[in-house]
């Protein structure tokens, strides 16, 4: 049981890093990234490729961060002149492009995937995941409580308003993407070493939407909400397995019921608590009273 708890915590921590990264993009800045799995996958594949080449893990981590940042700039390029709705389409496409490339390029392992050295000790994996989550949290916290973060919120609410304040929205979006994608790539590097294997089937659109579910469930714009959301998604997923084992029905019926329950919880959440489990706090600042 303890091993299982350690495993669940590790996964929650990794998914939280992904969620925090998405929160900087969507929760703070309003960038709709439907390709969140792309930097995650880039990080994981970089770790795998470095390991295949016999390089130590820091080389893979560095490669993952550099590639993710470079790709984020590349993806941003066509989005520069478009409104944020198009951002969703471009990132969705970019994520799929990466997956299909990995599937069809033999040097990237193809459908067979690549093996990565695993953490020998699950405790070490948990420690690393928690450390990365803490680092991601710190970065997110610093951003959201800085003047920079406040301007991102202005950008989220009204891009034109931000521009009238003499700020260039594109340069802010670029900075946000670089930070957020590097964060997600770091999560990917870690994930590859936890699971011990990467393949295109691990980086589908579904994974992106799991992160989105965690973010929306927890409360976009609130860092604590994201972590709570990631924990809720993972715990719902595993706890429903235990509940299912007490019900005597055919396994395929139970499996579908489990997913239906997951959907029902989401629908009820959106009906009765659309702001998320831990909603974003409204900050009131009175400049004159200070």
């Amino acid at each position: 049981m303890l091993d299982f708890a350690i495993y669940c915590l590790t996964i929650i921590a990794v998914w939280s890093v992904l969620g925090l990264s998405l929160n900087i993009q969507f929760g703070l800045t309003g960038l709709v990234n439907f390709g969140q799995v792309l930097p995650f996958g880039l990080g994981a594949y970089a770790a795998a490729l470095a390991a295949q080449a016999g390089l130590p893990w820091p080389a893979g981590a560095a490669l993952g961060l550099v590639v993710a940042v470079a790709v984020s700039l590349m993806v941003l390029l066509p989005a520069r002149r478009l409104s944020q709705d198009y951002w969703a389409l471009i990132t969705l496409g970019a994520g799929e492009l990466f997956r299909l490339t990995a599937l069809n390029a033999p040097s990237l392992g193809g459908a067979d995937g690549l093996t990565v050295p695993r953490f020998a000790d699950p405790h070490l994996a948990l420690g690393a995941a928690l450390a990365l989550m803490a680092a991601a949290w710190l970065v997110s916290h610093r951003i959201s409580h800085s003047p920079f973060g406040r301007l991102l919120k202005v950008l989220r609410e009204d891009e034109v308003l931000a521009a009238t304040l003499g700020r260039n929205p594109v340069s802010y979006q670029r900075t946000v993407s670089i930070i957020a994608w590097a964060m997600a790539a770091a999560g990917g590097v870690l994930y590859a070493h936890i699971v011990g294997y990467v393949s295109p089937s691990s980086f589908t659109v579904t994974e992106t939407f799991i992160v989105w579910t965690a973010l929306i469930l927890g409360g976009p714009g609130n860092n604590l909400g994201v972590v709570v959301g990631a924990a809720a998604v993972q715990l719902l997923s595993v706890s429903s397995r235990f509940v299912a084992s007490w019900i005597d029905l055919p396994a395929d019926v139970l499996a579908n019921g489990r997913l239906a329950l997951f959907g029902l919880v989401l629908v009820l959440m959106f009906l009765f608590r659309p702001q998320g489990l831990v909603p974003e706090k409204k900050e009131v600042r009175d400049a004159q009273r200070r």
Binding site: I11, S202, E207, S237, V238
Partner: peptide
């Protein structure tokens, strides 16, 4: 999904 397969396997083995 690989992630859910791992969740399932972790439950079964652990």
């Amino acid at each position: 999904r690989a992630q859910e397969a791992l969740n399932a396997a972790n439950k079964l083995y652990n």
